[in-house]
Every structure is written in C-alpha cells, then in structure tokens.
C-alpha cells in the first residue's frame, strides 16, 4: 500500500472513530488540503456508519430502549459506538457487548436497576434465535435442547417481557430464566425455571429415567412422564422416537 493510500485510510478511520461530527469532518478535510468534495456529501457517510450501529441496537433491544427513555438511550448508543466498535462482519453481533455496557452505565445515567438484566435477556433472545446449534432430528435418549441458555437475575424479567409493557418496572425477585429455540418453529421460547422444568432438564442431563425420579421424589411415574412430554412439546428437551 502506498503512503498516500495509507494516509487516506488513516484519516477515514479517525473520522469514523466517533469524535463529534463537526470536529471529525474538519479534521478529515484538514488531512486532505484541496479536497473539493462538498462536506455535506462526505458527512453522509459518518451518518450512515453511526446509523448502522444505532439501527442494529434498536432492533435488538427494543424493550431496553423504551425502559431507559430517549435521552439515556441516545447517550448509551453514542458511548457504545465510540467505546466498543463492531468487531464482527455479522452486524447483529455488534450488540453482544451492549448489555455489559448498559450495566456499566446504570449509575452514571440513572437507569432503572432492572435494565441490565432486561438488555441481557434481549441479547439472549436473539442469540438463541440465531444460534448455530442444530437440534438433532433424532436423539437416542432424553436430551436438553442444545440452544438452551440460562440467565440468573434479581427481577421477574420473564413475566415482564411477556406483559410487553416496557414502561412498567418488573417485580423484584430472584429468577432463573430459561431461553431456547423451539426445534420445529425455530422461534425463541422462554420461561422462568420451575421445579418441574428443572427436574426434566436434570433427567436429560443426568440420564435419569421416570421410574428412577418417581422413586427418588415420591412423585407418580405418570406425573413425571407427563412433565417430560409437556416440556418436549415446547422443545425444552428432545425426546427419542419411541417416547413420542
């Protein structure tokens, strides 16, 4: 690469780094004396590049956005664009570090305490939906859904998301949220972990039979089997063909 071309890329890199638009544009033009192109045309690119980050974040985190309000959202997006630029060619991946960024900024921006957990949930929702894991078409024994993700937080986020009103604040309370992709519908399913869901997952992970669980817990074997079938229907666990 010639020094001139390197200088060009360096100057564009500095422009896109996120210094305030007016300042960045003047610096860019100062680096190229005699450049005739109208500044308004060049500035379109600064707007596009920032717009892609904002657009991706707003698609991935609609509930968090509404929960923090427009001013705090703008601040979050601008700081994030500047401090954690996209490092992956798949544009949605730029949202991966956003929940951590939100968590870092709770105090400074006066965010409601549940927002980091909500952002983490929204990212997990997408990550599960788009997971590269492939649920096997046939399993030999009861198997946990390979896309299963477990989140632990101090708010009732599942009920909050289900209610769909981001302006409300979720109830406080420890929650283990389970998120997975339904193997047939390929949509994200989620629920707050219940004793029966955790028991069925334990059976899958440890290879326990309904008979064994019934003996150990005092539940009826029919009840254990019914739970397994119910959670298999929702795709939380995968059943071998003979058990369907």
């Amino acid at each position: 690469m010639t020094p001139e071309l390197k200088h060009f890329f360096d100057s564009m890199g500095a422009y896109f780094e996120g210094v305030p638009e007016g300042v960045g544009l003047e610096r860019l033009y100062a680096a190229h004396p005699g450049w005739q192109t109208p500044r308004t045309r060049t500035a379109l690119y600064g707007g596009f590049v920032r717009g892609h980050v904002r657009g991706a974040l707003e698609k991935l985190f609609p509930l968090s956005r509404h929960a923090v309000g427009e001013a705090a959202w703008d601040a979050l997006v601008e700081e994030y664009t500047r401090t954690r630029p996209a490092r992956h060619y798949e544009i949605n991946r730029l949202g991966e570090a956003f929940p951590a960024h939100v968590a870092d900024r709770v105090e400074a921006l006066g965010l409601a305490p549940h927002v980091p957990a909500l952002a983490r949930f929204e990212w997990a929702d997408f990550a599960v939906f788009a997971s590269e894991e492939v649920a096997p078409e046939v399993v030999e024994r009861l198997t946990a859904n390979p896309t299963l993700t477990v989140l632990e937080h101090a708010f009732r986020i599942c009920a909050h998301v289900r209610a769909g009103d981001a302006r409300k604040v979720p109830d406080a309370g420890e929650e283990l949220a389970l998120l997975w992709r339904h193997p047939g519908q390929l949509a994200t399913f989620y629920m707050e972990a219940t004793p029966s869901a955790l028991l069925v997952l334990k059976m899958a992970v440890e290879g326990l039979t309904a008979e064994h669980v019934a003996a150990a817990t005092g539940m009826s074997e029919a009840q254990v089997r019914a739970d397994v079938v119910r959670f298999a229907r929702d795709g939380l666990v995968l059943l071998p063909p003979e058990s369907k």
Binding site: T2, M12, R87, I91, L94
Partner: peptide, 24 residues
C-alpha cells in the same frame, strides 16, 4: 472498503479513484 483498524463499519465506502488503490 467496509472495515478499518479491525472495526466493521457495515457500509460500502468508496475508494479514491487512483492507481494506488487499483494496485492495492
């Protein structure tokens, strides 16, 4: 180009129309 210094800009950004860019 669409990436600078490891950062994906997610836009199709124009190159200068130069022989140096062709050679690159």
């Amino acid at each position: 180009y669409s990436r600078l210094g490891g950062v994906h800009l997610h836009d199709l950004l124009p190159l200068p129309f130069t022989e140096a860019a062709v050679e690159h």
